[in-house]
């Protein structure tokens, strides 16, 4: 299903249409499952989270505003947000360490970059204007849910340095994307 077909589905879900809700699940669950597995690390937790995310999709669909962005973007934002809440609520540092070791290579694959369109191409070009380690830090936070502490450890810099890097990187990214 093309991504823009998701918008009418999500609008129908907002109008409490249960058939549309099922169709939306079929269309969007694989992508959201991908987001949750990557961020949470295990399939069992990701499945748990997916159930939670779709429960919230039903309860919050009327907040979706098609004028402000794509349906898939809204759904991914909801899934990422839930994954981050789960990660930050973990007090178990052991599993955080394990998650760190299991992380895949951060370098984007060539074909991913080629397929990227619109926002994706723009952000890709703007990432290229950042120092490589700062770009990697932003990507690690967004894609893998790493905290400042995780990022500082990974890049072997003090926590405050990492925060400054990241904030400067974000401002530069914004400036570049608005150009």
């Amino acid at each position: 299903m093309p991504e823009d077909a998701l918008t009418p589905l999500l609008l129908s879900v907002a109008a409490q249409d249960r058939a549309a809700f099922r169709a939306l699940y079929s269309a969007a669950a694989p992508k959201l499952m991908g987001v949750l597995i990557r961020m949470l690390g295990t399939r069992s937790e990701a499945e748990d989270a997916l159930q939670e995310v779709f429960t919230r999709v039903w309860l919050r669909a009327h907040r979706f505003d098609a004028a402000k962005g794509a349906a898939m973007g809204w759904l991914v934002a909801l899934a990422r947000n839930h994954a981050i809440d789960r990660i930050r609520a973990r007090h178990d540092t052991v599993s955080d360490d394990l998650a760190m070791e299991a992380l895949p290579d951060l370098a984007p694959r060539a074909e991913t970059r080629l397929q990227a369109q619109g926002e994706a191409r723009r952000i890709g070009e703007c990432f290229d204007t950042l120092e490589a380690d700062r770009a990697a830090a932003i990507r690690g936070a967004y894609l893998d849910g790493l905290s400042y502490q995780d990022l500082a450890t990974r890049h072997d810099v003090p926590l405050n340095t990492m925060r400054t890097w990241l904030r400067r990187g974000l401002l530069r990214l914004k400036e570049c994307m608005e150009r």
Binding site: Y25, A29, P30, K31, L32, M33, G34, V35, I37, R38, A46, E47, L50, Q51, F54, K68, G69, A70, M72, G73, V76, A77, P108, T112, Q115, A116, Q117, G118, E119, A120, R121, R122, I123, G124, R139, Y142, L143, L173, K174, M177
Partner: peptide, 19 residues
């Protein structure tokens, strides 16, 4: 959210059970 959504294509799809 819109700005950073450009990274979303990097999340691969994964098979999801019917929940």
């Amino acid at each position: 959210e819109r700005r950073l959504s450009g990274l979303n294509p990097e999340f691969a799809e994964a098979p999801a059970p019917d929940l």
